[in-house]
């Protein structure tokens, strides 16, 4: 079997797991945000910002997926079908960090965002601090993204 299969599996892992995580995270935060807006529509912009925070993992996944695709050659048409199994598995391994960490961190970031939206509901002037809590969770997604990018780039 060509290693391309595994390389593409890696792309799928990065994009879909991180994307699923973001979808869930943004969903969780969105429910809380909608609740706040029913009470006070003026807070729309603030809660929308907080809702969007867990959305970045999906973008990181896309990012890694895209870099991997272009590395494999699937974008330009120059695919190396002779890629060995080991090479393909290396791509898969490189994509794992952002896939897994993206999935979990986005969900937890979504829950943290929902809690921060609660802060904005009661104390809108504390928006700066409310924004920090979800950003703390995101750090780990960024670290995973970094390792994934560096690994793919080194392949």
């Amino acid at each position: 079997m060509s290693g391309v299969v595994f390389a593409l599996l890696g792309v799928a892992v990065a994009v879909s797991l991180a994307g699923m995580g973001s979808a869930m995270g943004v969903g969780i935060a969105g429910q809380a945000a909608a609740g706040v807006v029913t009470e006070d529509p003026n807070k729309f912009a603030k809660v929308l910002l907080l809702q969007l925070l867990p959305g970045t993992q999906g973008i990181y996944g896309l990012l890694v997926g895209f870099i991997a695709l272009s590395k494999i050659g699937l974008l330009g048409g120059g695919v190396n079908w002779e890629m060995t199994m080991a090479e393909g598995l290396l791509f898969l391994a490189a994509c794992l960090p952002i896939g897994l960490v993206g999935l979990l961190s986005a969900i937890y970031q979504g829950q943290t965002s929902a809690a921060s939206i609660g802060i904005v509901a009661k104390k809108p002037e504390q928006f700066g601090k409310a924004m920090l809590f979800p950003a703390m969770v995101e750090t780990y997604a960024i670290l995973a993204l970094l390792v994934s990018i560096l690994a793919i780039n080194a392949l």
Partner: peptide, 23 residues
């Protein structure tokens, strides 16, 4: 100090997504 690696990650994110759109 490691936290500043986000400077790289976010900078790359802008550029790569922009390339995806162009492509």
């Amino acid at each position: 100090a490691l936290s500043y690696s986000r400077l790289l990650a976010l900078g790359l994110a802008t550029g790569v997504i922009a390339s995806v759109i162009n492509q």
